[in-house]
Design a binder for these strands. Structure first.
Lengths: 82, 82, 82, 82
DNA sequence: GATGCGCTTTAAATGC
DNA sequence: GCATTTAAAGCGCATC
């Protein structure tokens, strides 16, 4: 049992698995960064791209609602709506 | 002279000033957090509020341009425009 | 209520307060930058200064952190924590 | 060119690639979470595990950091760095 | 349900 | 000006 007997092997196994997964995860993060960099070099606005990607994650209703609230608040503070 | 003679006093003076300013800055950050918290309690969407505030920092032309690019990208990926 | 009736005045009030606070906060950030700039002009290494300041701010937490590390290693090895 | 002609296809390609990579990245994040969960179920303290893993990852940089600190203090005190 | 902590992401600063 | 590195902010989880 882990708590008292002290399963050193088990702990090391868990930790190894996590370290490995995190390594792969970091590699993907680097890939993503690279794609953004490439897109930027092609002339795209990466800031807007990031926003678009986050909007894509929303389901349709949520997106509409978010847009609606933003329109409302924009009007309230005197900003033009797109 | 700082580099060779070693102006310990001067260094400490600079550091003290910075620490003091950072303390005040942190206090303002806390105040801001509190206002957001109050707004949230009143029923406002703080995420949208943050966006509105960042949009307010832009000058008019920049805002229009950002909106235009976003519309373009939205259309390109099949998202509805607000 | 904010969502339906839509308290435009309340929203503007919150946003005004935040914008004001952020303005002051930014002013302090600028002041800090200026001090660093002045220090740099006097011959100090600002990177080192930043490091020292962060170390100074960590001083208090440092002991706690050392204690925490000991504690966690004890736990990891199955020893009781004090 | 992206800005005027507007390469819709290119944009969609970039975004698709990023979305795909982020999906994989999220899958790995979920895997990691699952391993922690399993470890927890086996009786390990996940907080401690996280701490240990972060310490393991810092091991390499640690020496460098120690050297850097010595270096910065030397500079602060006016001593030449090696 | 609230609070704190860690992670992720985003903005800024510096050096090339 | 661009790219890297570092600080700040926001977010979400986990705990109490």
């Amino acid at each position: 049992m882990a708590k008292s007997g002290f399963a050193k092997e088990a702990l090391m196994s868990f930790i190894d698995r996590i370290v490995k997964l995190e390594t792969e995860k970091q590699a993907l993060a680097d890939d993503i960064k690279e794609v953004y960099s490439e897109a930027k070099g092609t002339g795209f606005d990466t800031k807007v791209m990031r926003r678009i990607i986050s909007l894509l994650q929303l389901d349709k209703g949520d997106l509409q609602e978010a847009d609606a609230i933003e329109s409302l608040y924009r009007t309230a503070v005197g900003l033009p709506t797109p």
